[in-house]
Amino acid sequence: MPELDLLQVLDLDSAGVNWADEAAVGRFAAGLRQCLAPGPHGPGAVGVVGVASRPLPRSAGPVLEQLTVTLAQGPAPWCAGSRADLPSVLATADRAPGATRVLLELLRTGGCADVGHGLLVESLAYSMLLAGPEFRCWRASTPAAPPVEVEQPVLLSRRGARLEVVLNRPERHNAWGRQVRDGFLAGLELAELDPALTEVVVRGAGPSYCSGGDLDEFGTAPDVVSAHAVRLARSGALAVTRLRERLGPGLRFELHGLCIGAGIEIPAAAGRVVADPDTRFRLPELSLGLVPGAGGTVTLPRRIGRWRTAWMALTGADVDAGTAREWGLVDEVR
């Protein structure tokens, strides 16, 4: 395995493991587990990316489970993409090593936490990166436009026991800014407080459900401590999780067009997610020197596993609606 700054690459074509030999597979997996275990001098490697040109059998699971992701055809939830994605993955780690390290550490530890704890740790990590050099470099190269106030950033309509929540900034593809966030949370709070509401449907006006965080608002908090406090107090993913506990699949997100960053991180917490065939999903945060900060390191692994979540973040590639349904990122395509 050639050693890189953050990631090691394991070529499974030449690893010499007999996948039919359960004992051999177990020994190989144990060696990887030891390589990645934290110790007094830090982990031996932050991540290991597997690659294979041939389809991998399910018997390889104990080894694949230890890896960051495996770029190959193979069993769920460990495999995604192909060997051709490796240059993109390594380029991401090279451009944003700090954010990549934090992402991999979050994904390896987040599966043990409940949702609230996971969101707390994610917020701490995200807020720390806001003060880091990678985000500062991106912000300097991408000047923010002045904020624009809109009258009705979210539309609420009620008919009997059904509440509809519609993100309403179509000219910005319903970017997840302060006004949209607050209107969304007001709708969910109404549903949480009124037991007569048994169905809540969330959708977006215009060409997309939500294109992710409003880039003009990134880094505008007075300090990272304040950013962390607001992120937790106004967490869309946490509000969805609370309401899902009462409504189950009665809390439904209807997605279409672009669903980037927060546009999938928050819906992934819902009891039911449906998508139009044209829907595209993406996690681009590493390109900004950040990690998913709207709950993605918590909500997506619970739907598709930490391995495919890592693939989405490390490649920044689109996931189409069919693949999202196959993975379990959405429950229905219609």
Rank of each mutant, 00 (worst) to 15 (best):
44 G>R: 07
286 L>F: 09
142 T>Q: 11
77 P>V: 10
48 V>C: 06
151 E>F: 11
12 L>Q: 01
322 G>Q: 14
109 T>S: 14
188 L>A: 07
194 D>F: 09
28 F>E: 08
185 L>T: 08
330 V>S: 01
114 D>S: 12
306 R>E: 11
172 R>A: 11
286 L>I: 12
86 L>F: 08
294 A>M: 14
156 L>K: 02
174 N>P: 10
189 E>I: 08
199 E>R: 15
182 D>A: 15
283 L>W: 01
136 R>L: 12
188 L>S: 08
324 A>G: 08
58 R>W: 03
313 A>L: 06
221 A>V: 09
68 T>G: 03
299 T>P: 07
103 L>H: 04
19 W>F: 10
152 Q>D: 14
291 V>Y: 02
66 Q>M: 12
33 R>N: 10
314 L>V: 12
258 L>F: 12
153 P>H: 05
187 G>A: 14
53 S>Q: 15
305 G>R: 07
264 I>D: 03
116 G>P: 05
9 V>F: 00
86 L>G: 06
326 E>N: 10
164 E>R: 15
25 V>K: 00
212 G>V: 04
260 I>S: 04
144 A>E: 04
42 G>S: 10
152 Q>R: 15
18 N>R: 14
157 S>T: 15
245 E>R: 15
296 G>W: 00
263 G>E: 05
175 A>T: 10
22 E>N: 09
306 R>D: 02
191 A>D: 05
143 P>T: 11
203 R>T: 15
6 L>D: 00
231 R>D: 06
281 F>C: 07
214 D>L: 14
49 V>C: 03
247 L>F: 10
226 S>G: 02
328 G>P: 07
26 G>M: 05
297 T>I: 05
228 H>P: 02
251 L>N: 01
77 P>I: 09
172 R>W: 13
270 A>V: 09
201 V>Q: 11
104 L>P: 02
115 V>S: 01
8 Q>S: 14
299 T>F: 03
290 L>I: 09
107 L>D: 01
30 A>G: 13
256 H>I: 11
187 G>D: 09
144 A>R: 13
10 L>V: 12
308 R>D: 00
262 A>L: 05
113 A>N: 10
314 L>T: 07
190 L>E: 13
237 A>M: 10
109 T>F: 00
140 A>M: 13
294 A>Q: 10
53 S>L: 13
102 V>C: 13
139 R>M: 09
44 G>W: 04
307 W>I: 03
224 V>K: 03
78 W>K: 01
265 E>K: 05
63 V>H: 00
22 E>I: 11
194 D>E: 15
191 A>Y: 01
248 G>K: 04
7 L>N: 05
289 G>Q: 06
221 A>R: 10
243 L>G: 02
20 A>Q: 14
213 G>I: 14
34 Q>M: 12
184 F>S: 01
178 R>G: 03
225 V>I: 13
134 E>N: 07
116 G>M: 03
306 R>P: 06
244 R>N: 09
110 G>E: 00
317 A>P: 04
160 G>M: 10
199 E>S: 13
241 T>V: 08
82 S>N: 08
271 G>Y: 05
39 G>A: 14
107 L>W: 04
216 D>E: 13
121 V>D: 06
123 S>V: 12
273 V>P: 02
81 G>I: 06
107 L>Q: 02
